[in-house]
Design a protein around this nucleic acid. Structure first.
Lengths: 232, 232
DNA sequence: TTGTAATAAATAACCGGTTAGTTAAATAGA
DNA sequence: TCTATTTAACTAACCGGTTATTTATTACAA
């Protein structure tokens, strides 16, 4: 941060830890695990390099703590926003519920991805690196099983005839995740292509809308009831 | 390759260049631009390190040559396989042609992505690195404008009422690319998730099929003619 | 309240190993 | 011999992690 004279500051381990974590998230997001420089993290945090090792052991320890925190945050978010839609196992499903869930889930995921660019960039690095340091899947018992809940919901909707039974639930989620992630990570590329289209590059709202259409139209089975159009 | 005694070999600059390019593609694909080690490339190629600098100037020069070659190869491939479907500007479109084109394009792209894992990994690295060294878009006049041809085709199909006019053509291509790329780059992740589904992970064929469904169902406007079903 | 021991927070300087790139010499074919 | 090809040896800069040390806070006895 400031490389000038010595900065007076209160001594507070928690504040220091948090500053380091924040700076590290930024540097990791920009440079990936291998590309991130501890010196850069130290400089960005405003604390000394070896304090990082004191608090987090080594580079990987620091990285894992960031990923773990993000995962907790992510699951809490999911639990508050989407779990209620999924969790009503006792209630029978109807076409409207399924449609609302899918639409909400896609929009929620898209927004999350857009609003958490740092985390998404870290995931992009993970994908490139072959998920070497990926620790998200190290689940502990008792945690909300987001993927499992969603898959169960999709399966129920398939059995009830509201979602195409031929689709693989995991693949459906995967495709949604892929669409959202790819859009965000490839925005610079999309921008470079505007001289080809000779038209303005579509914005966030249009991209979200188009992904929602993609998912709903492909997943939902058109209902015969009168108050539903076949073309969504 | 062999670190033992000196290897007798004919002197041939072109052979050496090609061996270096091939080795470099592999190392770049596995480690990204920054992560790739020149020494590793030299070792894998069987030639000396400084020969690389002699032929390609610097690391970036080597990288750019690989990307440029891949791009040429890619466009040639596209020109032979899909251009004929797109290039019949004088012919009026019909629903069948549009459907076949979309399906062929998605399947072709998916297969290409699956069969070119090295190149796709390099693109994944580019995405993570924020497309810093991305040179694909540096097009020269006279080259086949793949993206432009496809976009024009989609626009015509929209005007003719076969593809949803509300969709942005560039975004549609982008989504197809994203679906295929994400599937391949995230296969390890998909594999990790199989303990959640407690079912076998869907294979390539099923994934391709599901992506085709996603695209066709969302893009194609259901035709009123008798011999077409509304649900694809 | 004060002096002091114990502890926690923070840092500067350093180290072994690595890496992109350079220099200059050796070698083989024309 | 002359020139393009190929190489070994070298270097300056960098990087993750360690060590030794300093500075601030706390605990508590007198």
């Amino acid at each position: 941060m400031s490389d000038g004279a010595h900065v007076r500051r209160e001594r507070d381990a928690e504040v220091a830890r948090q500053a380091i974590l924040d700076a590290a998230e930024q540097v990791f997001a920009e440079n990936g695990f291998d590309g991130a420089r501890i010196d850069a993290i130290a400089a960005a945090s405003g604390y000394n390099k070896s304090l990082i090792f004191h608090y987090f052991g080594d580079k990987l320890g620091l990285y894992r703590e960031i990923v773990t925190n993000a995962r907790k945050h992510f699951e809490r978010w999911f639990g508050g926003m989407l779990m209620p839609l999924v969790n009503n196992d006792v209630m029978p499903l109807d076409a409207g519920t399924v449609r609302v869930f899918l639409e909400t889930f896609v929009k929620w995921y898209f927004n999350m991805v857009v609003e958490q660019p740092r985390m998404i960039r870290m995931v992009a690095w993970e994908a490139a690196e072959g998920w070497h340091t990926y620790t998200w899947s190290q689940r502990k018992p008792g945690e909300i099983e987001m993927n499992k809940s969603i898959i169960d919901f999709i399966r129920r909707a398939q059995q009830a005839g509201f979602i195409d039974a031929e689709l693989d639930p995991l693949l459906l989620i995967f495709n949604i995740v892929g669409l959202c992630m790819f859009y965000v990570t490839s925005l610079p590329l999309l921008d470079q292509l505007k001289d080809i289209t000779e038209e303005p590059v579509p914005g966030l709202a249009q991209a979200q809308d188009q992904i929602v259409k993609l998912v709903l139209r492909s997943a939902l089975v058109p209902q015969k009831e009168a108050d539903h159009e076949t073309h969504i």
